[in-house]
Design a binder for these strands. Structure first.
Lengths: 146, 146
DNA sequence: CCTAGATACATAGTATGCTATTCTATTTGT
DNA sequence: ACAAATAGAATAGCATACTATGTATCTAGG
């Protein structure tokens, strides 16, 4: 049973990404938040209001994806947008005060899940995993020379 | 720049899963295949025809997700279904002969991407990554006791 | 035999992500 | 000043995943 699947990095990365995201979704649901909101909340909380393009870069997702995420976050009253006076193309995204109050809880939830993942694993496992993933992702980020 | 994001396992797992999937999608597109087809193709190729429920278990995705994936695979003529004579509820999923012919190329594409991810990394990095992810996923697979 | 429960699959609704395209606003080069 | 290029954001269309629910069909207990 289970062939060579568990020997494929691609399969295990996909599987663990889904497991992480599901646990995060469950833990965030009582706060009315979703996992995709996290990078936006952390970025805005750490560095203040930002444009959509800046948020997309910092979360490393494409701009249209961020557009949809921000629409949901606006619907859920996590963020609001202020049109930029000097540049009519952009709007500056702000955290609502309600969202700002949630930040400590959100950080604690994210930390809990991240650390629970490494229960019973040797110290440094998390850093090691992050290092391996960072390098693997970097190797695959450049498209192959054709 | 880049705060504590790159120090979060959850963020890096999500990011690398997306990078892996995008590269896989690009490489499979010329064959008319998508990444989500891989676990189905490999399972059917390795162990022969199977039911939808068996395929969902082997890919570790939920049944409704597998139902949609199989619908797309049927549309793309990668699989076909044969109603089970003895049990009117099920259908047995088979690879088309066209799909069977593609299996070697698909394996080579998947292997290429998996190994390209570890270019320049120490030998054993892939196995180590898989081990860490397997244990992290196992830790998060049981919901927390409430 | 016939109903209660279990099993296999389908459907609905939503979230998250992508590419391709479009729209508008700003900037740049002549 | 104005046409062309660039930049910010929105939209369309699709893939992949989830939960919740519905619909058959099958199996067991009475």
């Amino acid at each position: 049973m289970g062939f060579e699947r568990y020997e494929s990095a691609g399969f295990m990365i996909n599987l663990s990404a889904r497991v992480f995201e599901r646990r995060m979704a469950e833990a965030l649901a009582p706060l009315g938040l979703s996992p995709a909101y996290l990078p936006v909340i952390f970025t805005l909380s750490a560095t203040g209001p930002a444009t959509q393009a800046e948020l997309a870069r910092s979360a490393e997702i494409e701009q249209p994806t961020m557009a949809l995420t921000l629409r949901r976050m606006e619907r859920d009253e996590i963020i609001y947008r202020v049109p930029d006076e000097t540049d009519g193309r952009r709007a500056i995204v702000h955290l609502t005060s309600r969202a700002e109050e949630l930040v400590p809880q959100v950080e604690s939830i994210a930390d809990d899940i991240n650390s629970r993942a490494f229960d019973g694993l040797p110290a440094g496992s998390s850093a090691q995993l992050i290092d391996l993933l960072t390098r693997a992702a970097a190797n695959l980020t450049q498209r192959p020379v054709e």
